[in-house]
Design a protein around this nucleic acid. Structure first.
Length: 193
DNA sequence: CGATAGATCGGCT
DNA sequence: GCCGATCTATCGC
């Protein structure tokens, strides 16, 4: 049913993001993300690497926008999409990154409801743009370390039922199965088939 | 419930 | 100019 986790999880190891991006994307499912104390367990991710036509680092130079992707692992890459929403990524090794697509709202729900303008829990963090609005993530966090405030990442042990499928909203490399999620979570951006 | 239109703008060609 | 790792409202069944 609903994924529950308390604050007793331990912080992620410093080398957590210096690994294969698909592995990181899987391991992030169930990891508790908070931004200034607001957040909850990550329930949906997607992976992108520099050999991936859908990636912002694919056959491109480093620019002002994608600079964080070319930086060291363990930092945030935040960019604006469709001229109005923010998307939060966690940078991994070799210009790869994990897009955070959905979070189960657990901590600071009142703050999330105010920022999102809705009192529907399932509509607070069920999408990359929504969760940035709910958690207060903007360009100000682009390039910031994931191991320092406002970010905090904790993970408890235990197995998690992972679903995988094709990524959402892209026009290139649509067939790649690089979307991962907590199976049956009510807080996904979309259900897995 | 599924499909679709419109909003809106920075980065890149 | 074009278009996107999206969201919301609104339409139709």
């Amino acid at each position: 049913m609903i994924f529950t986790m308390n604050r007793t999880g331990r912080p992620l190891p410093k080398n957590f993001f210096d690994r294969d991006v698909d592995r990181v994307a899987r391991d992030l499912i169930g990891t508790v993300l908070t931004v200034d104390g607001v957040g909850g367990p990550i329930v949906e991710t997607e992976s992108y690497d520099s050999a991936d036509p859908a990636s912002h680092a694919f056959e491109r130079r480093r620019t002002a926008r994608n600079a964080a992707m070319f930086g060291p692992p363990g930092h945030a890459y935040v960019y604006r999409i469709y001229g109005m929403h923010w998307c939060l990524n966690f940078v991994c090794r070799e210009a790869s990154a994990v897009l955070i697509r959905a979070v189960e709202p657990v901590y600071g729900i009142d703050t999330m409801m105010r920022r999102r303008g809705t009192d529907q829990p399932k509509n607070l963090c069920s999408g990359p743009g929504k969760l940035c609005q709910a958690l207060g993530v903007t360009r100000a966090e682009d390039g910031a370390s994931l191991f320092a405030p406002p970010f905090a990442l904790h993970r408890a042990g235990g197995a998690v039922a992972i679903a995988s499928g094709v990524r959402i909203g892209i026009s290139k490399a649509r067939e790649a199965e690089r979307r991962f999620g907590l199976r049956q979570s009510p807080f996904l951006s979309r259900r897995f088939p």
